[in-house]
Computed example of a mutant assay.
Amino acid sequence: MHPEILDQEGYTSASVDEAPVRELFPGVRLRPLWRGASGAHANVLEMDAGASWPRRDVHEPGPEEVYVLAGTFNDGARDYPAGTFLHAPAGSWHVPATATGCTLFLFYPEG
Rank of each mutant, 00 (worst) to 15 (best):
Y80K: 13
G10R: 10
A88G: 11
A82Y: 04
G76I: 11
G91R: 09
E65Y: 04
C102Q: 11
A70C: 09
V68K: 04
H87L: 05
F85T: 08
V66H: 04
T12A: 14
F73P: 01
T84H: 02
E18W: 00
P89M: 09
G36M: 10
W93K: 08
A90C: 12
A40W: 03
W34M: 09
G50P: 05
A97Y: 06
S38G: 08
A77D: 13
G71F: 00
D48K: 06
H41W: 01
A97K: 03
A82P: 12
T103C: 00
A40Q: 12
V44R: 06
D48P: 04
R55C: 13
S92G: 11
V16A: 09
R35F: 08
F73I: 14
E46M: 02
Y108C: 11
T84P: 03
V28D: 12
W34Q: 13
T12G: 03
L45V: 14
S13T: 14
A51E: 15
P54H: 12
G10A: 11
A70T: 14
G101N: 15
E65I: 10
D7V: 02
E23Q: 01
D48Q: 15
V16S: 11
A49D: 12
M47F: 06
S15G: 01
A77N: 13
V16D: 10
W53H: 13
E18G: 10
L45I: 14
R56W: 07
M47A: 15
P20C: 08
P26R: 02
E4M: 06
P3Q: 11
G27A: 11
A88L: 14
P32A: 02
H87Q: 04
T12M: 10
F107P: 00
G71R: 05
D75K: 07
A49Y: 08
F107V: 05
P109I: 09
R29M: 10
L45R: 02
